[in-house]
Design a binder for these strands. Sequence first.
DNA 1: GCCGTTTTCGGCCCGACTGTTTTCAGTCG
Length: 572
Amino acid sequence: MKNLEVANLLYEIADILEIQDVAFKPQAYRKAARTVETLSEDIEKVSKQGKLEELPGIGEHIAKKIIEFLETGKLKYYDEIKKQIPKHLSDLISVPGMGPKRAKILHDKLKISSIADLEKAAKQGKISKLFGFGEKSEEDILKGIELVKRGQARMLLGIALPLALEIEERLKKLNEVLQINVAGSLRRRQETIGDIDILVSTKKPGVVVDYFTKMPEVVRVLAKGETKSSILLKNNIQIDLRVIDDKVYGAALQYFTGNKDHNIKTREIAIKKGYKLSEYGLFDKKTNMLLASKTEEEIYKKLGMQCPPPEIRENRGEIEAALKNKLPKLIGYNDIKGDFHSHTKATDGTNSIEELAEAAKKLGYEYFCISDHSQNARIARGLSEEDMASHLKEIKAYAKKLKNFRLLAGSEVDILKNGDLDYPDKLLKQMDIVIGAVHSGFKSSMEEMTNRILKAMDNENLDILAHPTGRLINAREPYEVDLQKVFKKAAEKNIYLEIDALPQRLDLKDIHIKAAKEFGVKFVIDTDTHSLETLKYMDLGIATARRGWCEKKDIVNTCSAKELGKFFKKIR
DNA sequence: GCCGTTTTCGGCCCGACTGTTTTCAGTCG
């Protein structure tokens, strides 16, 4: 998959054009880049089918450039425009507070063409002497460089969400706060978060902003205005607070939830209808009369569309669907009836069978599957055939004692390099549920990995394919695998693809889920829990399923305990 | 460079905050 390579190329072209002060093309290239970046199919495949121009934001010229790059590994146009600006100059605009205009001025006046040059000039006090710059700018540039140096790995949803909800709770207790929401990418439950956005309505903005900027964990106040303020916490986490009049709360929430492309598109729809949409409401362009602002629903309604759930506001077809009244009815956060993937202290978990079962009952589940590792997973202390056989007996014995609750005995079985499952069929048949997973050989070629997984899926005992791409967010790239083939096979063989809810996995991810759904694949949402603590992440898995447009019927573990036999051949 | 329920040409989201200015440009989300 060269999707990321192509996307980065297009982004870089956009940056260069922006520095050259070219109008409109940067936006066009950036839009195309985002399309490629979030494409679930292989761009080469799309290209070979001659369907590049069907993708949003990609027209004749960008399509030609993509084809050239895919076929030759090079792009003449890029090489040419790159020559026109100094090497590394496009790096400059990665420094917060530095944009194309300032980069160009600094280059023209001070010959600055890299972040290193920029730092040197700022430290020597050369920048503050320039027209249009001052001491504060110089200081901000140095602080910006620090941030870039420290790296800006995005925060995992599983870390950002609890933190944001905690601060939301604190603000909610202020008498002055009328309505409050976590907004932005967090409200959309994106897998990683850049910064945390919080929206508040109040009659006394000053009080709320003061409280917010003086919270004990605040290290720096980045901005503090009448209606908008930003703070930085110790671990470089930025939180933006937007304060708004209660009467326009819905408009602000719509604006502040995004994403950017979704907002642009909704505003374009507004314009076509003779309206204007901003965070202050939907207005008639001519008379400036306010048409809607209190709730998101009334704004979307006035635009002639359904209100898309925040999780799918990504401009991936939800606007077109909402206009036709054809939005999916997404799986709800209370629809899950059980969890199929968990580990006990028999392998690399920390709790006993009994403790996990008790915790699952408390969550209101009807069933729960213990699925410890197989023998090949040495690091995870995987169980030998004999040990697994007795472990299964132990689970089944305990299951008999439980009333109104179905405890299932299974295993997360390694898919070996040759595509075999890590236990003989005889042992697999004794399990209620067999979950296949790749835990080794991540660097294999796409062909090897695809064949390995497809072969495993031919094993009649396999029920679920766990974390199908093996990625760890910010830590490990997914292995190379032809997902289209996996999706096709999964649909044919009734093998359920897992949506692993661990914050660092969230695997499958949103765009792949949506693509797999097109093949008719069904999914399970599992926590892959190794302790009682991580059972709570089920919500992140559900959020990810929602981002992949899943309805209740797409997710197997929304079924009742009685219905399990319909989905799993070894369960009666 | 892309795109079309005003358009195949002429548009291209909208507003806040900041620093450096004497009314605004640049950056950000």
